[in-house]
């Protein structure tokens, strides 16, 4: 039988037209960010036309008003620290659980205990956590990182233990005969072998933490520190009705994650798909 390999052009064109739903809001935000308040008119063409002059004035002002670099630094610090620690801690915990789950009941219970945390909504933890973190002196960036490590633990342990099933135990046993202990065997042999899963965990953790508003909002309140999304929320009053300044700030806050997405698009898409399928 001959396989039908013709390109479906009608569908291609429909899907290309459909991308307007994605690009329109972004285009509009971009255009407004470059305009002056005097250029804002009350009709559609006025809002979507090019600015009379492409000036970066709104962006430099927005950077000053929202302390952009500082917020960006905080977001980067929190996200990168969370990813790094998640890969180290969750993978080794996943290893300890995964290698013992089949034989020992205790580890099976630990597995179910941690994974069931996936259904706990932040709302129920929020109020006690605010009190608890401030009592422990963790009402700050470090506290947010620790909380993220706990919030992403159920999903990540699920992913790591699932992936571990594909790595034969024979390898560790061979290393064990050579005299390497469990701890060394893990870091020398198993950890590098879980590379694809580290990528998935990094992507899912990054997307979740970078855009999260609620955790830093309640935990870091009063420290004067902002993450990038939090700055947008906290400077709403300062933007007032100056939409051009506000949109310049929004665009600035979207640029880092968009760059990350464009650079790592392939890993991100496969990471999301893997995460959902295994999870």
């Amino acid at each position: 039988m001959k396989k039908d390999t013709r390109i479906n052009w009608v569908l291609t064109i429909l899907l290309i037209i459909g991308t307007i739903t994605v690009f329109f809001p972004l285009y509009m935000a971009f255009i407004i960010a470059f305009k002056q308040p005097s250029e804002m008119t009350n009709d559609v063409t006025g809002a979507l036309a090019f600015p009379s002059k492409w000036s970066l004035g709104n962006f430099t002002l927005a950077m000053e008003v929202t302390d952009f670099w500082h917020s960006l630094g905080n977001s980067l610090l929190i996200t990168l620290a969370t990813i790094g620690l998640a890969i180290l801690i969750h993978s080794v915990a996943g290893y300890a659980i995964g290698r013992n789950m089949a034989k020992k009941k205790s580890f099976r219970i630990i597995y179910l205990y941690i994974v069931s945390g996936m259904f706990v909504p932040f709302s129920i933890l929020m109020m006690p956590l605010v009190k608890q973190t401030s009592q422990m002196g963790l009402g700050n960036r470090l506290g947010v990182i620790l909380l993220y490590l706990v919030f992403y633990m159920p999903m990540n342990i699920l992913l790591y233990t699932g992936y571990l099933k594909n790595i034969p135990v024979v390898l560790e046993e061979a290393a064990g005969i050579d005299g390497a202990n469990t701890w060394r065997t893990y870091w020398k042999i198993i950890f590098p072998m879980m590379g694809p899963m580290h990528a998935t965990v990094a992507v899912l953790t990054a997307l979740g933490t970078w855009n999260d508003v609620m955790t830093p909002l309640v935990i870091m309140a009063g420290t004067g520190e902002n993450t990038l999304p939090l700055a947008q929320l906290n400077f709403q009053t300062q933007f007032g009705t100056n939409y051009n300044l506000a949109f310049a700030s929004y665009i600035l806050s979207l640029i880092p994650i968009l760059i990350f997405y464009i650079v790592c698009q392939k890993q991100i898409l496969s990471g999301v798909a893997n995460g959902a399928v295994k999870g």
């Binding site: 459909g18 991308t19 994605v22 690009f23 809001p25 972004l26 509009m28 935000a29 407004i32 997307l207 970078w210 855009n211 508003v213 999304p229 947008q232 929320l233 939409y243 506000a246 949109f247 929004y250 806050s253 979207l254 994650i257 968009l258 990350f260 997405y261 698009q265 991100i268 898409l269 999301v272």
Partner: peptide, 21 residues
């Protein structure tokens, strides 16, 4: 790749943009 973009952007800022729309 294009159709996935909305998901990498934060809900808060997207909300502000749509609020204007």
């Amino acid at each position: 790749g294009i159709y996935f973009i909305p998901n990498v952007l934060g809900g808060l800022v997207i909300g502000y943009i749509f609020s204007f729309i």
